[in-house]
Nucleic acid binder design. Sequence first.
DNA 1: CCAGACGTTGTT
DNA 2: GTCTGG
DNA 3: CCAGACGTTGTT
DNA 4: GTCTGG
Length: 226
Amino acid sequence: MCGRYTQTASPENLMFRFGLTDQGFTVQPRYNLAPGQDAPTVISEGPRVLRMMHWGLVPSWAKDAFIGNRMINARSETITEKRTFKALLDRKRCLVLADGFYEWQKRERGKLPIRFVLKDRGPFAFAGLWDSWRKPDGSELQSFTIITTGANDLLRPVHERMPVILDRKYEEEWLDLDLTNTARLIPLLKAYPSRDMEAYCVSKMVNSPTNDRPECIQAVDNFSVE
DNA sequence: CCAGACGTTGTT
DNA sequence: GTCTGG
DNA sequence: CCAGACGTTGTT
DNA sequence: GTCTGG
């Protein structure tokens, strides 16, 4: 699954990497991004635009926002069967911008946090779905969920599931609202290849979501990831 | 037809 | 144990 | 995901 | 809103 991640790339870097056309947005580097917080996403409105959205999907029909606590992920295997997600697959797809994510491995001594990144250390996009919910005060809450799949070889010793990182060449297709045959999108939701990823142990400082500092992504000496 | 759910993960 | 908040 | 709270009444 | 269960 995916319950914590990082997005440390600069706005300039993100504009270049994701072909954004909007100017002047601000994105703070995030070393410990947790559910319930606002995070940068990209959607297509013809041109691609950056949108800050709330992590934890609150569907349009929700009576209150609490459901978002339990909707931080969506299983790719059942995404066309589950009411809530199926409805969003047509026109509510987004890229969730990131450059790493954390998983906790259970050891005898407790849980050990591990950061996963691409070997090139560059930004990437999780496959996401989003929706808009009307708050009691009339304003709109835009929120998203991150799609998950079975773990690849690198993840498997740590955790059975992992977030879907879109192959770069499929990002355009994922955002394309003119694409009407959404069945074509399902094959894109695969585990990213292990050979293009790396993992390293980090400090337990990352356990608390209140710690959002560069030290969170520093490698620590520990037993090797196995 | 209406009522009620709508989700994931991990753990038991 | 379970839920909320971050 | 993890951390931290989880409750009422009455009084100050 | 949309689907499932009764």
